[in-house]
């Protein structure tokens, strides 16, 4: 048991947690009858996927992906000397080393996904409000019952 935990659970503990969160979201999407609950489940599912993507960019001992720019003290003359000389002369600012910064690409992809996610959540909430106006309920089974009994087309 202890061997199992050390070999399988410990190095990938975060991934296991993401899979559990994703399972919770998927379960809510299928089994919950209330539409708002389904939408909360959808958001939880979405965050599990975003968490997984961001985790791919983590590096041990790396800092946030903001590279140091000009030093504050020599800001002005750094500008002048840099533009006076040719552009391939960058000895004053050594190139950042890739292993020192966490991977920026997943951050970019997921940043836009979050904002688009809230916009689509808004669309889904608008649809559920419009359903509530027509049926007077947000429970899936009651809506289906009304559609089957035929008093939907009034």
């Amino acid at each position: 048991m202890r061997e199992f935990i050390e070999n399988f659970v410990q190095p990938h503990f975060n991934y296991w947690a993401y899979v559990i969160i994703m399972m919770i979201g998927l379960w809510a999407l299928i089994a919950k009858r209330n539409l708002i609950k389904k939408l909360i489940g959808m958001s939880i599912f979405q965050t599990a996927i975003i968490l997984f993507y961001v985790s791919l960019g983590v590096k041990d001992g790396a800092t946030i992906p903001i590279a140091p720019h000009h030093v504050a003290g020599d800001h002005a003359d750094a500008h002048d000397s840099e533009h006076a000389e040719s552009h391939d002369d960058h000895k004053a600012h050594p190139k950042p080393v890739a292993d020192d910064y966490s991977n920026p690409l997943p951050h970019v992809l997921m940043l836009t996904a979050i904002v688009v996610g809230v916009a689509t959540l808004g669309v889904a909430l608008a649809v559920s409000q419009s359903l509530f106006k027509d049926f007077g309920t947000l429970e899936e089974d009651e809506i289906l019952e009304q559609i089957k009994s035929g008093d939907y087309y009034d």
Partner: peptide
């Protein structure tokens, strides 16, 4: 592994 700098996505 978690935080590996030589994984395909990072390295």
């Amino acid at each position: 592994d978690w935080g590996s700098a030589s994984s395909p996505a990072n390295g």
